[in-house]
Amino acid sequence: MSTTLSLDGRPIPFTPGQTIMDAALAAGIYIPHLCHNPDYAPHGSCRVCMVGVGGRLVSACTTAALDGMTVESNTETIQSTRRSIVQMLFVEGNHVCPACERSGSCQLQAVAYYVGMLSPHFPQFFPQRPVDASHPDFMIDFNRCILCELCVRASRDHDHKRVFAVSGRGLASHLVIDSPSGLLGDSHFAASDRAAQVCPTGAILPKHRGYEQPIGQRLYDQAPISVVGDLRAQPGGE
């Protein structure tokens, strides 16, 4: 039995058990995503990877590929829906790209470029979130956290430390750190942790390094994420 799905009209082979996202990535076709990272179990929370299947939208990262499935991804309607979701992420936090060291090599920004976002569109929430600079090697700027839980998963499943968790609910959901003081510096977090490397935005950043590569010459300054892929796929990435 051949196992093939059709993605925007292109036949894509897959192995049973793979998700639509797995199949697309293996075939070198980009479906935008933020909470997904092939090194960790699918999460399905950011909703950026929505694709059309049978007249409905489903998240490519959590939906099993089925033989003969017809999947729509790169249509104007779907891009527009994804754009709204990315805009929601932008207004929910404080994403000041000109003041962020990750700018140009930030997946949130790159995905926003990919879906054609020119402005955040919605009213900004302007939440007030203090920065945690208590750790000697890393800082956390919660203003840039999009709750993808990649650091939570990496710390739990790879580093076996459980340094991060999500607390609260609704719009008050927020990343917390497992230490008596709640500060990163008092936790078991180390610069060598996988959790230090997986953040798709500038929320978890190394200290003592700044703008080694000038703005304008960075990964996504040159080419879209649909061509160059995620940060993890880059030389020097995790």
Partner: peptide, 21 residues
């Protein structure tokens, strides 16, 4: 709904707050 959204996914977490406002 803004009060009861669990906050896991973007459209519900942010959308319920946008609708309420």
């Amino acid at each position: 709904f803004a009060h009861e959204s669990c906050g896991f996914c973007t459209p519900c977490r942010v959308g319920t707050a946008l609708l309420r406002n």
